[in-house]
Design a protein around this nucleic acid. Structure first.
Lengths: 341, 341
DNA sequence: ATTCACCTTGCAACCGATTGCATTTTTATT
DNA sequence: AATAAAAATGCAATCGGTTGCAAGGTGAAT
């Protein structure tokens, strides 16, 4: 049952009666090796079925060509799009992706960081969990100068680049749109305020109100997990309010869709009685009826940029020392919020 | 700019004035080391900030505790759910996931397999690309006894386990349901017939017809990429048919939703004029109106089982020598297909 | 006191590739 | 042909753990 032993550079060296050092150099196109020697080596390697040993190399080089990715959850449209973008770039540049989900738990996040650390990833791409309080668990890596890039759910850190959209502006755009549609009482449904994305969107929501001189009823702000279930519950809660809100801005589309379903089921018309704006531009947003007004969030692009920036940083290429990188978002207006003509 | 050097077992050995061998053994709870020695070692390791070096270990052990995952695309609900399941199990059992997308291209699939091979993954979880013709590119790994498990889009191989649902039965169930709803001309929209999933669903579609003695018009079978765009085009094609079909069974929900949208837009009523059944039970299936009848496909579970089986195989644990593992599917009947009361 | 068995620990080879420096070979120059 | 310069190759140490086997230490039994 023993499988044939792996071919090493020593085997090739012996077969060709040269030294392993020459084989090693020949294999990687070192300038100081004669052309025909190289050809001989390559040929022998090919026909002996040589596969290089990544560990041995990594052990010497102290580089893994692997990027760690730590995310809350993989199975949302947004996140899978981000990962797809990262994978594309990583693949092109010869890197692999090591992916780990925190399930929104800070504890798991810490464990993931440690595993990644032990696996000696060359860099880290991180989107923080709901309940992460501080980012000390990244210190060990940063001390070793391993670059870390935060995306979407970011943290402030002088040594780390953050890739985001302008969530304040996005929240502002969404809310202002609702106000422009004649909404007077707008509810906000978002996730944990520990996370920039939700705190910022709420900030934008407030700014828009302030700018128009509209007072905000604090009872209209709902913080939950933004799951489908949470969305339904939020809808129930909203429908108990008196007076009823006439607009809802919610920080993801899953939640928005769940809310619209509940509202419709309860006989409340959208957008006439309550206008709704979501966030992310998930495919469901143009399937729900009425089609959902939402913020377009360029996931694939964010993934690509995050990966590119990280790989450039790893290799000391330019464009590396930015602190924050802000991608463009846009408000996509569909029927769920349109009350004027 | 030099970061402090990594702590090795040699550093610990020196600090404690014992041998590196003892440190190595102490660190992993080897039976032949005295309790207090172990405690001393652990304590020193902790406070010196020791992190084990995975490469050095892998180089010796020839094991990476890493599983390669090769999939067509990451950004579908089904696939991200599968990966979420795999990641959960892998994480619990101390494995990492190395993920690679083929973008449905056989060429990229071959490249991915080679990269995984070089990375010395302990095993492979694979769902085949659309246009993969044969599976010879896995031979090198199989020759080295590296276990490979296919899931969803599988290939026959005596040495590999396949994890699937009964696609023939699922196709049969879907079609039979349409027939029972009074459909006489049912169109089938699916992906490449090189892939078992689509070939089998078509087979089930035919079986159902045969069983009821209904003839099939070959013009009603459409093969495409199952993308949203392809769905819209398929809908256009179907609407040109004369006579119009009165039922459509399509092999994913993305496609089904795109088709329903086109039909509705063209003023064709679903399910009255054309009943539609999809596949996968994506979230969009219960958002589209009418809600989509579909086949529930247990993605998370499939991911968990695939990962569990692979890890067991890697470690020579039982339940490893199955050839095929069939998960339960179920037909979820919603409005898009219900024409009777 | 001696012997033996067992428990702990250490020695040293090994895993496979990389690389600074020394050495040999080739080429160019006179 | 002799010699210097340049090019090609080899030597050997190194990366950080792991592990078979040997050696040292302990206590019990005789």
């Amino acid at each position: 049952m023993k499988s044939p032993k792996d071919i090493t550079i020593y085997d090739i060296a012996k077969a060709l009666d040269i030294s392993p050092a020459t084989v090693s150099r020949g294999l990687k196109d070192h300038p100081g090796i004669r052309k025909d020697t190289k050809k001989k080596i390559l040929e022998a390697a090919r026909q002996m079925g040589y596969q290089h040993n990544t560990f041995a190399r990594n052990l010497r080089i102290k580089k893994t060509n692997t990027i760690g990715v730590i995310i809350p959850r993989l199975n949302s449209y947004f996140m899978s799009t981000v990962i797809a973008g990262m994978e594309k770039i990583a693949n092109e540049r010869g890197y692999m992706l090591l992916i780990s989900q925190t399930q929104e738990s800070a504890k798991k996040e810490i464990a993931s960081v440690n595993t990644m650390f032990n696996s000696r990833v060359d860099g880290l791409l991180v989107s923080l969990a709901f309940d992460t309080e501080n980012i000390e668990h990244f210190d060990a890596m940063l001390k070793k100068e391993i670059p870390i890039i935060f995306f979407d759910r970011v943290a402030e850190h002088t040594k780390c680049t953050s890739i985001v959209i302008n969530n304040i502006k996005a929240g502002y755009d969404a809310t202002m749109h609702l106000i422009d549609q004649g909404c007077k009482r707008i509810a906000y449904v978002g996730g944990s305020l520990k996370r920039n994305v939700y705190a910022d969107r709420l900030k934008g929501y407030k700014q828009a109100h302030a700018e128009r001189g509209v007072a905000i009823d604090p009872a209209l702000t709902i913080i939950n997990t933004l799951s489908e279930q949470a969305g339904s519950e939020a809808a129930q809660q909203i429908m108990q309010m008196n007076p009823l809100p006439d607009g809802i801005f919610t920080a993801n589309d899953t939640s928005a869709v769940a809310i619209i379903r509940e509202l419709k089921f309860a006989g409340i018309s959208v957008p006439e009685q309550i206008a709704v704006v979501g966030f992310n531009n998930d495919p469901i947003s143009w399937v729900i009826e009425p089609n959902l007004t939402t913020i377009h969030y360029p996931g694939q692009e964010m993934g690509e940029i995050a990966a590119t920036t990280l790989i450039n940083t790893i290799n000391n290429l330019p464009a590396a020392n930015l602190n924050t990188l802000v991608l463009r978002h846009s408000l996509i207006i569909r029927q769920s919020s349109q009350r004027k003509k």
